[in-house]
Amino acid sequence: MGFELGFNQPLLFLPEPFNGIGIQANYTYSDSEFDEDVGDNGFGFPGSSKNNFNSILYFEKDDFGVRLSYIFRDDYFRNLPGQGAQAANSRAVFTESDERLNINASYDLTEKLSVFIDVNNITEEGRRDFFQEKSTFNGSFNRERTVTVGITGRL
């Protein structure tokens, strides 16, 4: 169960050349749980954060577009301990809150052909896992920045 709030606001009132700027954002609250026959011990659905926030600052004009996005999610239950069930004596793994900064730029060469570049995880944020309490460290994982360059065609 949960809810989501979001908006998209192009800032059309801005003077040239800034009249292609806009802002998008959304917040999602999600409270998940398993049925008792799955073995619920109160951790919710794996991978589901209670609080998620996404925002995008964008500029789109004529054949050019650029988007800078910020993504946040809070701590979340990572896996079902034991053999496919949440056994009460198993150690559940959680992941700490996560932030990401991404940028994407594209240019339409023709009506049917575009080029783009995506840079994901600009600040190279990693992942930290823990058992039940944040003081019980389980592991740290590096997530490098990735850059993708490509061409998109439309029929």
Rank of each mutant, 00 (worst) to 15 (best):
A92Q: 04
L57P: 04
Y76E: 03
E125W: 03
Q132D: 14
A88F: 04
F18T: 08
L68V: 14
D108I: 06
G84D: 00
F7L: 12
L109K: 08
G84Y: 00
E16Y: 12
Q86M: 07
S69F: 01
Q24M: 12
F141K: 02
I21F: 15
L57G: 06
R73H: 06
L68S: 08
L155S: 10
R128I: 02
F43D: 07
F45C: 06
I21D: 04
S90V: 07
T95F: 08
L11Y: 10
A87I: 12
G153C: 06
N138I: 05
D40H: 03
I122K: 00
D74N: 11
F45I: 15
L155G: 11
E125D: 14
D129I: 01
R128Y: 01
V149L: 15
G42H: 05
I117R: 08
N138W: 07
F45S: 12
G2E: 02
F77I: 09
V66E: 08
G42S: 04
D35I: 11
N79R: 04
I122H: 00
A87D: 13
P10K: 07
F7A: 14
P46C: 00
V147K: 11
I56P: 10
G2Q: 04
P17A: 14
D75P: 02
L14S: 04
F77H: 12
D63E: 15
F43V: 08
T136P: 02
G47M: 01
N142E: 10
E36P: 11
G82L: 00
N51S: 05
E36Y: 11
T152W: 05
G139L: 01
R143P: 03
I71N: 13
R145G: 09
T110D: 13
S30G: 03
K50Q: 09
A105F: 06
V147Q: 13
P10L: 07
N8E: 14
F7H: 12
F72T: 00
S135W: 10
K134H: 07
S32Y: 03
F72K: 02
I117L: 15
R128N: 03
F94M: 05
G2C: 02
F141Q: 04
F34A: 01
L80F: 15
Y27A: 07
I151K: 13
F94G: 00
D98M: 06
S106K: 10
D62V: 06
R67S: 11
P17V: 06
R73A: 07
D37K: 10
V93L: 11
D129E: 12
P81W: 01
I21V: 15
I21K: 07
R143V: 10
F34I: 00
S30Y: 03
L109C: 08
R73P: 01
Q24E: 15
F7D: 10
L14E: 06
E144G: 14
Y107D: 06
F7S: 12
E16I: 12
T95R: 03
N52T: 12
I103Q: 05
L113Y: 13
I122W: 00
I71V: 11
